[in-house]
Nucleic acid binder design. Structure first.
Lengths: 347, 347
DNA sequence: TTGTAGGCGTTATCAG
DNA sequence: CTGATAACGCCTACAA
């Protein structure tokens, strides 16, 4: 056992403060925690002394006594070196910042294997390291959700699941977004519009394709020219799909992508194959990553506020912790069509 | 006080296990923590029972008893919505994953105001929430470093500071990287090479410019045509600098940028001004962000492994915690010139 | 309004 | 090799 040696803190403890003020620990604790049955005078003395000596309660002790960790966990997939992950960074930033407002901390854990394994969640639950979880990139049948529900452990998801009525969740309306994008392209005169999906394991991918299908269905375009291709939310996936789509006899004049990374891959291949963008081919992404604006041409996309996602998710979870019995809540936000240059009229 | 109500865990405790096995808590604890003075037989019984009942020690209790949090803190700047932040995401991923190997957790905190304020560090230290810190984006005179040193609190930096001999640190050799990049451009026949900096508050920015200056100095290029421009590590900063540089009478034929985001801004403006890349202008970035490969042309850059950065930083810190008295260590890694298409010969 | 005492679940020390 | 017993530092009934 070469454990790290404990270095006893020279930090001031509640007993020091008690001694100093000639009060007892209990009184100090109550004074500081806003109990009403404390004389104003004592409370002030205590607070003043606490400030003077820089007293801050020991979190571990507090947590043990309270039986709470005041910490929320999030588990990141280990391999996320996709361009997508500008999302993760902003999401964490927002979550952390919003949790801090409520006095909660954010514990970031990494999943070594499959991103959807429950094992890290189990360990975190069993070791009482967190009071709740934020789960993102949900699957329709999500084992993580199943596990936490079975344990009756608080969590919120960013993204819907099959058990939507049994937990709090927040999501972007991907269906509506792609309806809007599709009808925009139709309006621009495109007759052959294709769609590249996002790996059907992600539940959200289904909503996006639904939006596409719905508007294509309503239109009078020739369905056989409106192809759906599988993708995987990566640039590479976009490249592969683009090859297949653009080397057809009647290639699409517009491609709708399930995310920006995919769109970048599509644009890359399209250029290699001699398509001009947007003259010969319109490309639309989804996510609104900042770098899209630096592409040539700047990527048109459906964007939404990641800060908002983080904030909403945190609010839902904190409310759940405060009132565990309340009915589950959900919220949907909308993406905005942001036309920057990679789309245009069909000539 | 509308505190979250404590829901006493039905999780199994050490006392349950002790009762079940007819042993005492102490014995269970020692058996599970690998003490030698336990009979093989008992140890096995204990371990087996622990597995059977899914016993995991309560972290809060353990932390209180040990006087350790087994948690490392990192403070993110609130506003980091620059393209740079793909870095943050990968960095956190790597740090978290490597910490987990050592049984440590990662606590992510957000700085509401100035990214270099010490206040969040103070709170985290005083509340004993963390045992150490990882600091990145260091300044030459860094208040965070000053504070932690004054408290004798363990930390490691990614990036150098003025007090380099007083703490552990890891860094990329930016000077060497820019020497290499500069001489590459000289070799390619460029006579007018410019440099866009990265906000001189960052210590690392100074090393980069030094590398540039050194090689320009050694060369026989006309110095007045090798301009240095200030930047801020953002795409916008690159755009502004590019305007100034490219609208000169004798614009540079190559621009070296302090990071990839800056380079993207430069390329954008260069194209707008009618420069072909790389025929009329070579552009080199630094960071090696994945999206660079999807630019048109793909961005040439100096890249390094963020995974490695995280790993090295974690190793340094864990060693520090294990052996607080050991002399400080540091490590430097090198960036690799990755030529992808945005640079070429000067014709 | 304040003090007392016990508990939170571990780990560590010291006998036996 | 194992069992008591005492921390760890805070919170909270209950008593005064």
């Amino acid at each position: 056992m070469d454990k790290v040696k404990k270095v006893r803190n020279r930090e001031i403890r509640i007993s020091d403060l008690a001694l100093e003020l000639g009060l007892t620990k209990g009184t100090i604790s109550r004074a500081l925690n806003g109990y009403e049955d404390i004389s104003k005078k004592t409370r002030l003395r205590v607070i003043e002394a606490a400030n003077k000596y820089g007293y801050v309660p020991s979190t571990p002790a507090r947590r043990l006594a309270l039986g709470l960790s005041e910490t929320i966990g999030i588990v990141l997939p280990k391999i996320s070196s996709q361009p997508v992950n500008t999302f993760v960074s902003e999401f964490i930033n927002s979550i952390s910042s919003n949790l801090n407002k409520y006095g909660y901390d954010l514990l970031v854990h990494t999943n070594e294997s499959d991103a959807f394994e429950v094992e890290p969640y189990q360990r975190l639950v069993k070791s009482r390291k967190v009071d709740g979880f934020i789960i993102f990139r949900t699957l329709k049948k999500d084992k993580r959700v199943d596990y936490l529900l079975s344990e009756n452990f608080p969590f919120v998801t960013y993204g819907r699941t099959a058990r939507i009525m049994e937990h709090d969740w927040f999501d972007i309306d991907g269906e509506k977004a792609f309806e809007e994008a599709t009808s925009h392209l139709i309006k621009m005169g495109h007759k052959r519009i294709s769609f590249i999906g996002g790996g059907k394991e992600f539940f959200s991918a289904q909503f996006r394709i639904q939006g596409f299908r719905k508007m294509i269905g309503k239109s009078n375009l020739e369905k056989k020219h409106c192809v759906e291709m599988p993708g995987d939310l990566s640039g590479k996936g976009g490249e592969i799909a683009a090859h297949k789509l653009l080397e057809q006899k009647f290639p699409p004049t517009a491609i709708l992508c399930s995310n920006d990374a995919t769109a970048l891959g599509v644009i890359k291949i399209a250029k290699e194959l001699g398509f001009r963008i947007p003259e010969d081919l319109s490309v639309l992404g989804y996510d609104g990553i900042a770098l899209g604006g630096y592409m040539d041409p700047p990527l048109s996309t459906l964007s939404f506020s990641i800060e908002e996602c983080g904030r909403e998710v945190v609010d839902l979870l904190i409310n759940r912790l405060k009132e565990p019995k309340k009915p589950f809540k959900s919220k949907i936000a909308f993406a905005n069509l942001q036309l920057r240059g990679s789309d245009g009229e069909n000539s």
